[in-house]
Amino acid sequence: MKIDFTRSGGFAGMRSAVAIDTENLPSTESERLHRLVEEAGFFDLPAALKSTAPGGDRFQYRVKVEEGTRRKEIVADEAAVPERLRPLLDYLTGWARASQKRKTV
């Protein structure tokens, strides 16, 4: 499974991104990501999760997942993220942060 993740916006307006191929991951990590994608019902989500409420400085997420013949890209406003998708986004945010760090080592 391949995942492309970007978080943008927020007060700081900083972009943070990571690309993951689960084939290159230890099996526990790979299994965890597969499970989070399943639990999010990722392939059944609408392509755009837009917030209808006014506001400012919230994050915006863009996630692309490819698995076998399945392929999907979603864009989600932080205020419109469904509960079931939250754990996957939090996990990928942590990955993006960690991979930024590795670049500097």
Binding site: G10, F11, A12, A53, P54, G55, G56, D57, R58, A79
Partner: peptide, 8 residues
Amino acid sequence: YDNAFWNG
């Protein structure tokens, strides 16, 4: 949480 926002 690395942010501040206005939620309307």
